[in-house]
Simulated scan of single mutants.
Amino acid sequence: MSPMRMFFGLGIMVAIAYIVFAVGIFFVQPNLVYYPEYKRDITGTPDDVGIAYETVELATDDGETLHSWFVPAPDATATVLFFHGNAGNLSHRMGYLSMFYRLGYNTFIIDYRGYGQSSGVPSESGTYRDAQAAWQYVTVKKGIAPSSIVLFGESLGGAVAAWLATRKEPGLLVLASAFTSVPAMGAKLYPFLPVRLLSRFDYDTLEYLQSVTCPVFVAHSPQDEIVPFTQGQALYEAAPGPKQFLELQGGHNNGFIYMQEDWVKALGDFIDGNLPPPA
């Protein structure tokens, strides 16, 4: 076989392998985006840290049931509607729940469909439906004024919170270690693929921020090994004012706001300074 024919054959094999890999990425995307590990494993409850809470079985408008917790704080000055990241479940966010309680805020945290003890299978449109059901619960069932609600999104939850903020009128939006969009994240992970053509997900936090009208608090770490620091900076630049950027320290999964008292104070000061006083 001539060298030219061998080279041509090798090129064909590489092209086929590339196409197969790209097709594979297209079909396995839900497994790359969602990590509902420990699906039925609730590792603890607020009771374990001495905080009373209510278990809520939240119904969505398409028939799913979301396992949720409402954690009331004495004489609460705000209510945090919390949307967690793409891994684990609500019981892995105990540090956040304790922080909000200490700051004097109620918290309502949900597990998306397919996570924790919630029914269904996660999807982008599904997480948005879940967010709407959560908003309906706190504003209608609990009678909490939208102006005193803080939408808090962690990582993937940042996109969910920002999406909801474009459709409702919350008092404030917090984005912690959030990305600009799934295609942007995919381009970072697979720079050799036409990710924007292959992506089945948007979660376009950056685009949603163009329509947000409430104050925005963005927190991100330069050491974040999953979501680039530059994406956090881009979200801050796109956000309306008033706004604040908090530079965290540590990786994506250990740079939590609640781990440093000065970070907690910065968040609390921003929330208290930008929400109306309680009635």
Rank of each mutant, 00 (worst) to 15 (best):
E57G: 13
L58D: 14
L58I: 15
A22W: 05
T60K: 02
S125L: 03
G268E: 08
D111I: 00
F229K: 13
W69G: 00
F152D: 02
D75V: 09
D41L: 03
L175K: 04
G24I: 01
F270S: 08
T230K: 12
R196Y: 10
G88E: 01
F7L: 08
S147W: 11
S118D: 02
D202S: 09
A52F: 10
P194I: 06
A238G: 08
S91K: 01
Y18L: 06
G186T: 14
E237S: 10
Q29T: 04
G241E: 15
C214I: 03
G120D: 00
F256T: 00
V174A: 04
E37F: 15
E64Q: 04
L103Q: 07
N106Y: 04
M259Q: 13
S148V: 10
A266I: 14
V23H: 01
P46F: 04
Y236T: 14
L235E: 07
T205V: 11
Q231W: 09
K265T: 14
S91E: 02
F100M: 06
Y101W: 15
F7K: 13
F217V: 06
H67M: 15
V138H: 02
T180N: 06
V71K: 12
L189Y: 10
P215M: 00
Q233T: 11
L197K: 03
A145Q: 13
M13I: 15
E237Y: 12
S119Q: 03
L173H: 00
A238Q: 09
L172Y: 00
Y96T: 08
K141G: 04
A76S: 14
L156R: 02
F217H: 09
N31E: 09
D75A: 10
V212I: 05
A219W: 11
V218E: 12
I42V: 10
L90S: 01
P242C: 01
P3H: 08
G273K: 05
Q260W: 09
A134N: 05
A279F: 09
T139P: 01
